[in-house]
């Protein structure tokens, strides 16, 4: 299933972005993402792409990483904005029969698709250069409640186990005749409900065993304070990328404020 196809989100490396301390990296890249979300001027998009493209090159992530991860979310954005150039706006650029390509629609669709591409690539830079567990640690150090981080960790830990269980159960169901042409739709729904119910049941029973194991290992015995995130090699580990990224985010926001509306 799709979950297992993209399990390798983190790509180990030695680039400056990889070595950038996780906390300022998370905060700076999130600031950049929100700055990009603010863009309403089409003219700012080339600058946004220069910034994001520069960061991507700096991170030394392979282009194949982007190519592998973009198509799935890309389909959604095409489905959402694909109609806009044909139905939105007054200025007709090109017409054939009842089909008319409109300037305003093209502009809005390009703006949305551009923002989407830039934010998504920034997200991939963050996730591709930072292990998920480090991100969780950072979130905890930023004050996210331990219940949320512990639950995220456990969900992530067992997600792939449960996905494998579901794959096995589906295969067994198909071997027992699910999906054969003579079955009615209501019967197929019944099978699927039983499959989902069995999955919940197995997960529930597994959770009881997990809880017992966690208790035996001391979970909940002492409330440990969140570990302070420290940088081993001093400020140079994050000063340059942090200041450049925040500067780029600020430039996008200032450009958005100063440029006249479209």
């Amino acid at each position: 299933m799709a979950v297992s196809l993209h399990a390798d989100v983190f790509i180990p490396g030695q680039s400056i972005i990889h070595r950038w301390a996780a906390r300022p990296k998370l905060l700076s890249l999130l600031a950049l993402m929100f700055a990009i979300a603010m863009v309403r001027q089409l003219i700012l998009l080339p600058w946004v792409f220069v910034v994001v493209g520069g960061l991507y090159l700096w991170s030394q992530l392979p282009l194949s990483y982007l190519a592998r991860r973009l198509p799935y979310p890309g389909l959604f954005i095409v489905a959402m904005v694909g109609l806009l150039p044909w139905v939105s706006g007054e200025t007709v650029l090109w017409q054939w029969s009842f089909l008319a390509l409109r300037l305003e629609g093209v502009q809005v669709a390009s703006l949305i698709a551009g923002r989407f591409l830039a934010i998504l690539t920034t997200g991939f830079i963050l996730l591709g250069t930072t292990p998920f567990l480090t991100l969780l640690e950072v979130m905890r150090s930023l004050g996210i409640p331990p219940l949320l981080t512990d639950m995220t960790l456990l969900t992530y830990r067992y997600l792939f186990d449960i996905a494998n269980q579901l794959a096995t159960m589906r295969q067994a169901m198909q071997l027992r005749g699910y999906g054969q042409s003579r079955q009615t739709v209501s019967r197929q729904w019944g099978w699927l409900a039983a499959l989902m119910g069995s999955l919940l049941l197995r997960s529930y029973e597994q959770s009881q065993r997990v809880y017992q194991a966690m208790r035996l290992r001391g979970y909940g015995q002492n409330s440990s304070a969140p570990r302070r995130m420290t940088s081993r090699s001093g400020n140079q580990r994050f000063a340059l990328p942090t200041s450049l990224t925040l500067l780029a985010a600020a430039s996008v926001v200032i450009g958005e404020i100063l440029l006249p509306p479209l």
Partner: peptide
Amino acid sequence: LPKAALLAA
């Protein structure tokens, strides 16, 4: 917590 996490998964 484990129950909620595994059922969420």
